[in-house]
Simulated assay, not measured.
Amino acid sequence: MLLSDDANAIAAAERSAAAGASASEVLGRLRETLPLDAFGLLMIGLPRTDLPALSALLPHMASEETQRNFTGAAGVPLLGQTVGFVRTLAYNYASLSNRSLKDAKILDYGCGYGRITRAMYYYTDPANIWAVDPWDYAIDLCKEVGLLGNLAQSDYLPQSLPAPEGGIDVMFAFSVFTHTSRSATDAALAAMRRHIAEDGLLAITIRAPEYWRADPAYAETAQIHEKAHAEQGFAYVPHPRETVAGEATYGDTSISLDFLKQNYPDWEVAGLDWSLVDLHQRYVFLRPV
């Protein structure tokens, strides 16, 4: 699937790794020689028997079962979704901040098994990346496969995050606020505001009310949730999971733009985007106020 130039670049990186180059050095070389999609294909394909040095240095990909359990997809089709979001993030950050992601300090909030964190290696060193998730199982998965960066478990209702305060250039929360309760949404946005740089950018995804009719699980109740969304700007159905402070903080959620603007004065909506790959993940770019 890789073009010959890409395969040659990866072979050169393998030789560098075998000669003792560090992960940071190898990733720097790969950034210079590979396009994003080829970089992504390499990252989701490790370990590879023909690349023993790179496989020992860079993180292994999660199993297909893990990928599907977290996202409903796996492999190359899922990579297409990943690089689609990453390109959108890179474009909007450059457009809105007049800077590239090169060497940026980045926080992945709700990192799961590290799917998008891996793609961030294309832009910045792992030392500049913070990957956090409230689920200890997710962080354990990241550690088991050798995910690089600053990995830490956060709280479900965080007051702060395990990251530098006021020092993060770019934050993203992909498919997080499509699932959180009101209190968990409030807490996360407040905590992230403490850690973002004053000229930073936060990318989140939210669902529009059309989601409720699109999901077969809500075929009989879609109207109820659409009404809640229309009247309150926020509709939430909890999943049967363990509670946090007496509340189920995880479920399915839709949020309106007006709700964001009216309830989170520490943030302003700076831009919007979406992808044909997943019409129910609307990208919202927020600036700290």
Rank of each mutant, 00 (worst) to 15 (best):
M1E: 11
L2N: 15
L2Q: 08
L3W: 10
S4L: 14
A9K: 09
I10F: 10
A12D: 15
E14V: 09
R15Q: 13
S16M: 13
A17S: 12
A19S: 13
A21L: 05
S22Q: 08
S22W: 03
V26M: 02
L27Q: 01
R29D: 08
L30H: 09
T33P: 06
P35L: 12
P35D: 12
P35C: 04
L36E: 08
F39V: 01
I44H: 01
L51I: 00
L51C: 03
L54I: 08
S55A: 09
L57G: 01
M61N: 09
A62K: 04
E64W: 12
T66C: 12
Q67R: 06
G72Y: 10
V76W: 02
V76S: 02
P77T: 13
G80T: 11
V86P: 04
T88R: 15
L89C: 01
A90F: 05
Y91H: 08
N92T: 03
A94M: 05
R99T: 02
R99Q: 13
R99I: 02
R99A: 14
R99Y: 10
D103S: 05
D103T: 06
L107W: 01
Y109I: 12
G112E: 14
R115Q: 08
T117A: 14
R118I: 04
R118L: 15
Y122F: 09
Y123L: 01
Y123V: 01
T124D: 03
N128H: 14
N128Y: 11
I129S: 01
I129A: 02
V132E: 13
A138G: 06
L141G: 10
L141K: 08
V145Y: 14
G146Q: 09
L151N: 02
A163G: 07
A163N: 01
E165I: 02
D169G: 06
V170I: 15
V170W: 03
F174N: 15
S175W: 00
S175N: 14
F177E: 08
T178L: 06
T180C: 14
T180K: 03
R182A: 13
S183Y: 07
A184L: 00
D186I: 06
A187C: 00
A187Q: 09
A188C: 11
A191P: 01
M192P: 03
R194G: 15
H195R: 00
H195L: 00
E198C: 09
L201F: 04
L202W: 07
L202N: 03
T205N: 13
T205M: 12
P209S: 05
E210P: 05
Y211A: 03
W212Q: 04
R213V: 10
A214P: 04
D215F: 05
D215I: 07
Y218K: 12
A219C: 07
E220P: 03
A222R: 12
A222W: 11
A222N: 00
E226P: 11
K227R: 14
H229G: 07
H229C: 09
E231P: 00
Y236L: 05
P240F: 09
E242G: 15
E242R: 12
V244H: 09
G246I: 08
A248I: 00
G251C: 11
G251I: 04
L257H: 05
L257A: 01
D258F: 01
F259M: 06
P265Q: 12
W267S: 05
E268Q: 15
E268M: 12
E268A: 10
V269Q: 04
V269P: 07
A270K: 05
L272N: 10
V277T: 10
L279D: 00
Q281T: 02
Y283H: 08
F285T: 03
F285W: 10
R287D: 04
R287S: 06
P288L: 05
